[in-house]
């Protein structure tokens, strides 16, 4: 069950990934266009590292996650996990790899089968992968629950008997039972109350420390990502527009979109100054604007921005790991400190 982690290569490597969905019309379901949900994304996560992925609804962050775990089929690109080419691996290899790659979803109400008991839910994966004998089910379930701070008396109960925070613990126990190397967390605390949210975030950090876990942590909430992630990638309309260490990206954002996100996030105790309020809405991913996809809403856009699509590149004054996809990245004034 324990396989060694290859230290020279990243645990997860995504290269030029595209996931497009056809827009179907008419009786013959003819494709009349494509929703470019993920449109050329490359990223990597090292073993034990937490990468935060932020962006607003429709930016493609959930589709990216679902493509990595195999819930969506990519249009193009490569995904390597643990040294395996996930898109070309045999079914058998895939199944084995899936153990080590788990996912936790936003809504703990719809992601648990209501007809299964907690014991069945938590050990379902272990049995399916043949990692335990049916007779060992109870012991395995007790151990998995203990890890997330739930008592054994939960075993014979059903999901509806639990609160949102407890359900999310059950989801975490279910994922952790398979001893994953990478857990993709898609908005894991967005549906939880503030007081319970802190409990779940602490649990996720404890588990990471104990097991050397890596996280792909997806959230629209910058403060949550700042708390959980070592590195942050910012997505806009299917592309990564900024990437780097969490502290530099969120404290000194380089891309105008990241600046706007940081400025617009209401945070207690921060001076109530004038916020950078972006006009308009996120355009449709079926017809992304030419050039820089952010240019129609960008307060700093020039004519060139409407023509040239900027690549993710290093900012002159920043450390090499901080990259920004903006033509004007080196000429904009640094954003004011928070």
């Amino acid at each position: 069950m324990i396989s060694s982690i290859n230290l020279s290569k990243p645990l997860l490597q995504v290269e030029a990934l595209r996931t497009w969905f056809p827009i179907l019309r008419g009786v013959f379901a003819r494709a009349v266009g494509q929703i470019r949900a993920v449109d050329g994304v490359s990223l990597h996560i090292n073993a034990g590292e937490a990468l935060g992925l932020v962006g607003e609804s429709g930016c493609g962050k959930s589709t990216l996650a679902r493509t990595v775990v195999g819930l969506e089929h990519p249009t193009d690109g490569r995904i390597y996990f643990d040294g395996l080419d996930l898109l070309r691996a045999s079914r058998q290899t895939m199944t084995r790899a899936r153990c080590r790659l788990q996912m936790i979803f936003q809504d703990p109400y719809s992601s648990l089968n209501p007809r299964l008991t907690v014991m069945e839910l938590v050990t379902e994966g272990l049995l399916a992968h043949g990692l335990i004998e049916p007779a060992a089910r109870r012991d395995a379930a007790v151990a998995a629950l203990r890890e997330v701070g739930l008592d054994a008396d939960a075993l014979s109960r059903y999901p509806h008997e639990f609160s949102g925070g407890q359900r999310q613990r059950i989801c975490i126990a279910r994922a952790m039972a398979l001893r994953p190397a990478l857990v993709i967390c898609d908005e894991p605390v967005s549906a939880l109350d503030v007081s319970v949210r802190a409990q779940v975030l602490n649990l996720l950090n404890d588990l990471r420390e104990q097991h050397g876990l890596a996280y792909l942590f997806i959230s629209h909430d910058l403060a949550v990502v700042r708390h959980m992630a070592d590195r942050v990638a910012v997505m806009y309309l299917g592309r990564i527009v900024e990437e780097g260490p969490a502290a530099t990206v969120l404290d000194q954002p380089g891309h105008p979109y990241t600046r706007a996100l940081v400025s617009a996030t209401p945070v207690p105790y921060r001076p109530r100054q004038n916020r950078l309020v972006l006009p308009g809405d996120v355009p449709s991913a079926s017809r992304p604007p030419p050039g820089c996809r952010f240019h129609p809403r960008c307060p700093f856009a020039t004519l060139a921005c409407a023509e040239i699509e900027p690549a993710l590149e290093r900012m002159a004054t920043r450390i090499s790991g901080h990259r920004v996809a903006c033509l004007r990245r080196n000429e904009l004034e640094p954003s004011p400190p928070l």
Binding site: V194, A198, N202, V224, H227, V262, T265, P268
Partner: peptide, 17 residues
């Protein structure tokens, strides 16, 4: 208020209720 997250350097552990 203790459970609120800031955009600044994170505390290692959040205080929860």
């Amino acid at each position: 208020l203790d459970a609120v997250l800031s955009l600044g350097a994170p505390a290692r552990r959040l205080k929860d209720i």
